[in-house]
Nucleic acid binder design. Sequence first.
DNA 1: CTGTATCCTTAGGGATACTG
DNA 2: CAGTATCCCTAAGGATACAG
Lengths: 138, 138
Amino acid sequence: MSRAKPARRSGCPISYTLDLLGDKWSLLVIRDLMFFGKRRYGEFLESAEGIATNILADRLERLEGAGLITRNEDSATGGKGEYALTAKGLDLLPVVLELILWGAHHDPKTGAPMEFVRRVKRDRDAVIKEIRARHENR
Amino acid sequence: MSRAKPARRSGCPISYTLDLLGDKWSLLVIRDLMFFGKRRYGEFLESAEGIATNILADRLERLEGAGLITRNEDSATGGKGEYALTAKGLDLLPVVLELILWGAHHDPKTGAPMEFVRRVKRDRDAVIKEIRARHENR
DNA sequence: CTGTATCCTTAGGGATACTG
DNA sequence: CAGTATCCCTAAGGATACAG
């Protein structure tokens, strides 16, 4: 299925970001890549939120189209895709960390891992550096 | 119209945030309050993205329900609403600033005000402090 | 000006079956 | 396992008219 790219709504950078990521699933795929080292289709499906297969396929395609992730066709494994963050995708790290801090702070029933949250709060830049390195060395 | 709150999908703080803000409009309303000092219905309608009246009404109601904004019925002006960010809403400031940095950096056609972007990049904490103060002193 | 309400269309998304 | 395809329903959203 080919999909026409939706038109940008304005020159605002927030609007730009929302045009790409303003839905309930895209950022969860990013999260799985970024923090949990997931790379394969089936791994994304396993996440707690329970994304549907068609939605996942759609989001992977979109994110690739937006230059946030890459898909490496692994011919050795018989045409299975391996997904990874691009530099542009990895640049979302500060955004996502702030989302985590906000969510963990304001959700009364949060299940966020508090040791990690505390570390981000204290050592934000170090955490960024560490996670970046982990992705760049693969 | 009453709307049933959609169920949370998981305990993940990112998922929590997306459950509240994962659409293409909510964060633009937050932006208008946060940076442009907008407070009234008609002011939100004027923004470049062109939100529809029914969508705006819906989002204002939702954001109020989520505790991100307040609506002050101004009886002096004949029942007009004045909207403002709550502390919880204002806490989104770091998130939104990172979104701006990312969007301004990666959108080839960005219309972001570059002086502001550069200032955020250099003096992030000072910008946060300044904008917080502006809202808390109203 | 600040909303509500209605109509209608499209996009999002859940469930599930199916293919290489 | 890694997707595609289909069915079907609901939510999101645009346009516009209307009310206090």
